[in-house]
């Protein structure tokens, strides 16, 4: 059987999604045997970004012309393009202020008032520019979901689609409900599960790192939080942390 040819790369990101693959200590040796890492500059010299690839796992938001070039190049060279992680899927932390400040204001704050600025535009998800075949969510992604995808690729398919909120797994773990019982700003009801309610199980409210669940009742979440005394600003800041531009009127 021909090995599955992979590209693993990053755009505007923290490298955490690529690192998640390297953190699969139990599976990594097997992955290295079964896949051909044609392009993986973080861990491999002498790669070819021209491919061709069976799948390209790409992390990060698109925020510079160089990001866009790389995204088009990998899209063209790969049969499947995977938006690897929340930045690639929704814009992620880099995009949190997209609704409030222009890119130039942010750049001036960091690089000063005079002189030329690095070329950069409002960070955006892959879906704004190219078609995406699969999405792995999370900041960082769950190792299980990465391994699940790799296993599916070997079998010539993709994993099953999940569509339930963090609360589903949180309730089944019998965690104390941080939203209803402790009155904390927990985003569990509107966020896609699959993390086995990792943070609430640690006593930390869901910060929304996996992006919106399909048919999220955003309006109800907003009401619940407002009733508990949180300000609209504070709620929106938290909602925007990993994905800007929620529809607060959405009921399903």
């Amino acid at each position: 059987m021909k090995p599955v040819r992979l590209a693993i790369a990053g755009l505007t990101a923290c490298s955490g999604c690529q690192l998640t693959l390297l953190n699969c200590e139990d599976e990594l040796a097997d992955v290295l045997r079964r896949f051909e890492l044609v392009y993986f500059p973080m861990a491999q010299s002498g790669g070819r970004k021209e491919g061709p690839f069976d799948a390209a796992l790409v992390e990060g938001a698109v925020s510079t012309p160089a990001d866009l070039d790389m995204l088009f190049s990998l899209r063209n060279a790969s049969r499947l393009l995977v938006a690897y992680g929340t930045c690639a899927a929704f814009g992620g932390v880099a995009a949190m202020n997209n609704g409030q400040s222009t890119r130039e204001e942010l750049l001036r704050t960091v690089y000063g008032g005079q002189g030329s600025l690095p070329e950069s535009f409002a960070p955006a998800p892959f879906g704004n520019f190219v078609s995406v075949d699969w999405t792995i969510r999370g900041c960082p992604p769950e190792k299980d979901e990465v391994v699940e995808l790799l296993a599916a690729l070997l079998a010539g398919t993709l994993p099953p689609v999940r569509s339930y909120p963090v609360c589903t797994e949180c309730r089944s773990r019998e965690n104390l409900c941080l939203l209803l019982e402790k009155g904390e700003l927990c985003l569990g009801p509107v966020i896609q599960g699959g993390c086995n309610a990792r943070c609430p199980a640690t006593g930390i409210a869901c910060e929304g790192c996996r992006g919106p669940v399909r048919e999220a009742n955003v309006a109800q979440e907003l009401e619940l939080l407002l009733e508990r005394g949180f300000g609209r600003d504070e709620i929106e800041r938290r909602m925007n942390r990993f994905k800007p531009g929620w529809d607060y009127g959405q009921r399903r």
Partner: peptide, 24 residues
């Protein structure tokens, strides 16, 4: 690397949010 601009993104956020955002 693309400019990440965290120092600018953190302005306007509450003290409690800073560590969760900046670790990214």
């Amino acid at each position: 690397e693309s400019p990440r601009l965290f120092e600018a993104l953190l302005v306007g956020k509450s003290y409690a949010e800073v560590p969760d955002i900046v670790c990214r």
